[in-house]
C-alpha cells in the first residue's frame, strides 16, 4: 500500500488528477447537463455523494469479497452492480428524507449510474492499492473535482449564451473547446501534487 498522505490524495484528485480535466471521464453528463449553473450544481453534488460512498463500498467489497474468493475477473460486473444498487437506494432515501434536494436533482440521480467517472474512480482506487481512508478521500476529492469542472463549464456556457458564436461551433463543439482550454490551464498545476 503506497504511503501517500490522504491530504495529498484529496487535493490531487481535485486539481492535478481531475476526473474530467485530466482523465476525461464522465464526459457525457458533463457536456449535456452543463447549460445551466443551477442544475450543474445539483448534478455535481449528487455525483460527489455517490462517488464518495460507492468508492468506499467497492473498496470494502474488493478487499473482503473479491480478493479472498479470487474472483478478480468478475470485479467490473460486481462494481457496476454495486453502483447501480447504491444509486437506487440513495434515490429512495433522498425521496423520503430530503425531498427538496430530491426534487432539485430529479432525473439526474438515476443518470449517475451510467457516469463512467464513478467506475473509473473505483478502478483507479484498486489499481493504486489505496487503503480505506485513502479510498474514501480519493472518492470525495474526485467528486469535488468533477463538480468543480462541471460548474466552471456551466458558468462559462451561461456567459456564452449572450455571445455571438460562429454558427458551426455553437453547442457541443464549443463545450469541447472550452473543456480543452480548461484542461490546458489545469496542466499549470501539475507538479504541485503527484499521485500516479
Amino acid at each position: 500500500m503506497p504511503q501517500i498522505s490522504p491530504i495529498v490524495i484529496f487535493f490531487a484528485s481535485i486539481i492535478t488528477s481531475n476526473m474530467i480535466l485530466s482523465n476525461f471521464l464522465g464526459m457525457c453528463s458533463y457536456l449535456s447537463i452543463s447549460s445551466e449553473y443551477k442544475t450543474a450544481t445539483g448534478l455535481g453534488m449528487a455525483v460527489t455523494l455517490v462517488l464518495t460512498l460507492t468508492t468506499f463500498i467497492n473498496w470494502a467489497i474488493y478487499h473482503f469479497v473479491i480478493v479472498p474468493l479470487e474472483i478478480q475477473y468478475l470485479s467490473y460486473i460486481i462494481y457496476i452492480m454495486v453502483i447501480a444498487a447504491f444509486v437506487q437506494i440513495l434515490e429512495m432515501a433522498m425521496d423520503r428524507y430530503t425531498p427538496d434536494l430530491y426534487a432539485k436533482l430529479g432525473i439526474f440521480l438515476p443518470l449517475i449510474t451510467v457516469n463512467c467517472a464513478i467506475l473509473g474512480v473505483t478502478l483507479f482506487m484498486v489499481i493504486r492499492q489505496y487503503g480505506a481512508l485513502q479510498s474514501l478521500v480519493y472518492g470525495l476529492g474526485s467528486g469535488l473535482g468533477w463538480w468543480l469542472a462541471i460548474n466552471m463549464l456551466a458558468a462559462i456556457r451561461e456567459k456564452l449564451k449572450k455571445a455571438k458564436l460562429p454558427p458551426g461551433i455553437s453547442g457541443p463543439a464549443i463545450s469541447f473547446i472550452i473543456t480543452g482550454i480548461m484542461a490546458m490551464a489545469f496542466i499549470g498545476f501539475s507538479g504541485i501534487f503527484t499521485i500516479q
Partner: peptide, 22 residues
Amino acid sequence: GSLAVISGVLSVMISISEKVLN
C-alpha cells in the same frame, strides 16, 4: 455462486429499502 450471492444480497437490500423507505 459469488455473483448470485452478491446480486441476491443487493436485491434484498433494495427491496428492504423499498419496503422501509417507500
